[in-house]
């Protein structure tokens, strides 16, 4: 009788081959990840995800309930409220301290919003998927961590 661990590894090797055939990485995925490096070289201050209502609200979820996100960086805090319905998102945000800014949304479909002097901005038809906000302030650019909505 063969050693069971040897059989285990054989079976895993076969499963690995099966996954490569029946469940491969989608084409184009690799290139999108390679391209992410170009974004990294763009100089921007990183605003880290400090709060995500999805992490907190066990049982409080579902369509129609907005997702609340807070991203913090030393110069600015970005608060977002995102409601997803019908495959697109409605986004309401504000900058703290309040200030005007150009807000670029990097994602499947790039969008540009404008924060008013009170730091408020909003946008419709945000495509779901991976996205990051870049806030262009007079003296610097702040980029949020990427998240999936």
């Amino acid at each position: 009788m063969k050693d069971e661990e040897w059989e285990n590894q054989e079976l895993e090797n076969q499963l690995r081959r099966a996954a490569e055939i029946f469940d491969p990485l989608p084409s184009g995925a690799l290139q999108s990840a390679i391209d992410a490096y170009a974004l990294h070289t763009l100089e921007a201050e990183l605003a880290e995800l400090a709060f995500d209502s999805l992490e907190r609200a066990a049982g409080v979820r579902g369509p129609g309930r907005p997702r609340l996100l807070t991203f913090r960086s030393p110069p600015v805090t970005i608060e977002l409220e995102i409601s997803v319905s019908g495959g697109t998102g409605h986004i309401i945000g504000r900058l703290l301290p309040p200030q005007p800014a150009r807000i670029e949304i990097h994602g499947r479909r790039p969008m540009v919003l404008t924060a008013d002097p009170l730091g408020r901005f909003s946008g419709e038809h945000l495509p779901t998927g991976a996205f990051s906000l870049r806030c262009r302030l007079p003296s610097l650019v702040v980029a949020t961590e990427w998240i999936t909505i």
Binding site: A19, D23, L25, P26, A29, S32, A33, A36, Y37, L39, H40, L46, T128, G129, A130, S132, A143, E145, W146, I147, T148
Partner: peptide, 23 residues
């Protein structure tokens, strides 16, 4: 795929992970 995300959502998560690593 271990978390059983479909291909479209899985692709978004895949990208998010790499974009975030780059940051």
């Amino acid at each position: 795929r271990a978390h059983r995300l479909n291909e479209a959502d899985g692709l978004e998560v895949y990208q998010t992970a790499w974009f975030r690593l780059a940051q």
